[in-house]
Design a protein around this nucleic acid. Sequence first.
RNA 1: GGCCACGUGGCGGAGUGGUUACGCAACGGUCUGCAAAACCGUGUACCCCGGUUCAAUUCCGGGCGUGGCCUCCA
Length: 455
Amino acid sequence: MALTIYNTLAREKQVFEPIDRTNVRMYVCGPTVYDFAHIGNARPVIVFDVLFRLLRHLYGEKHVTYVRNITDVEDKIIARAAERHVSIRELTEGTAKIYQEDALALGCLKPTIEPRVTDTMAEIVAMIEQLVRNNHAYAAEGHVLFHVPSDPDYGKLSRRPLDEMIAGARVEVAPYKKNPMDFVLWKPSTGEQPGWDSPWGKGRPGWHIECSAMSEKHLGETFDIHAGGIDLIFPHHENEIAQSEGAHHGKPIANYWMHNGFLQVEGEKMSKSLGNFITIRELLAEKKFGGEQWHGLVLRHAMLSTHYRQPIDWTLDRLTRSRTELMDWARLLHDVAPSADLHEDVLAPLSDDLNTPAAYAALHRMAAAARTNQEDRAHFKRALVFLGLYDNQKDADFLVGQSVDAARVEELIAKRGAARKAKDFKEADRIRAELSSMGVAIEDGPGGTTWKVMS
RNA sequence: GGCCACGUGGCGGAGUGGUUACGCAACGGUCUGCAAAACCGUGUACCCCGGUUCAAUUCCGGGCGUGGCCUCCA
């Protein structure tokens, strides 16, 4: 089965052909750890985790290297640390830890490597020196800048003509820039600002160079897939290409570029000013969205119900439905042993540019079959586990922060059973209503009365 | 202002130059003390206007709407 990927560089779907089948390499731009990650940040984390899982399935677990960086040097970090009167280290360590916990709660596998900018400083300096030697960069007033006109291919990812960008530039151009488009590779640090020694004095890296340096360090000069949010296409990814390919004499940095679409909340742009800004942590642990807490796998299920390149509207309705469905599946699959092989009906749509909604159609067929057949249950469970959507939870586990007194429920069910036996249906219905008011639904089946928590 | 993406039935959401997924909700039925679950059945949608074509939701052009980038926000 051929894997096809929509390559932003080519603006078309292409058959994926790895450089080295025994070491397939992917890089995803991770967070700048100055604050909690929001739900929009969760999208690439989840989506490209599915890609990681798929590649591991296709090429073998030991033959895929997934790098997701943590950017722990950046001006927003400096500002935030000063605001809170904590050290930069304290801020970045704490934020990075929460990010990693969030990713785990969202059902994501740990990346192979999670490099930090602060551990990559020597490589960053070396790459900048190489760019200077290759006449792609110049030093000026303690800064080192990438000279955009030195790269005739500049703009090939975002497909923006240079002259147009310069014309549209709204920022004041720093006087030391040879060209308005030139961007910073290294900038001087003074006073309290974190800094590292370099040939250009004490300073710190610009925004884009860290990804070029970290990807080269861990994946080599050319690797297979580079991914991130669509808003990173310009300028971040464009500049990464310019840096890496400038340093490596034109060798491509990555063969395939993948970008996930944007997320909105209840039909509006998520922003602090609109008051609809929502972090992953708030969804998981606080009752801030719809007055409820949400299980990480419910969030994952909701996120994957739209194709990754489409815009997604993050709504309460979507989460509620995702939870209901997951609970239904859990009732079917709890304690079922998964089958060894992954069903082709799920694999095929995933292999078509991660078409998760089409894969979900297959899951629904499998769910229907699983209701009557043990073998189908095993296949269905295998598929859900593969997608990271299920890890043997009970249905009520997906109702976070709600608790039901199980002993009391069982007691009422027994009383109702006695009333039914005595044909006192009025009393039986009263007890049903009482349970219902507790949020418990009951079902009389051939094996007795079962109950579930209503979502 | 420039560039780009998206606009599918009540809702979510794939996909396709002709045979129109899938899920939720709704409605009808079987079953049930009543229900629920399960099962069976019902519902012909593709923003607007032109164009190409035997045929367009699908291709092209224009418009409208929503969003993104151009301003170190994924």
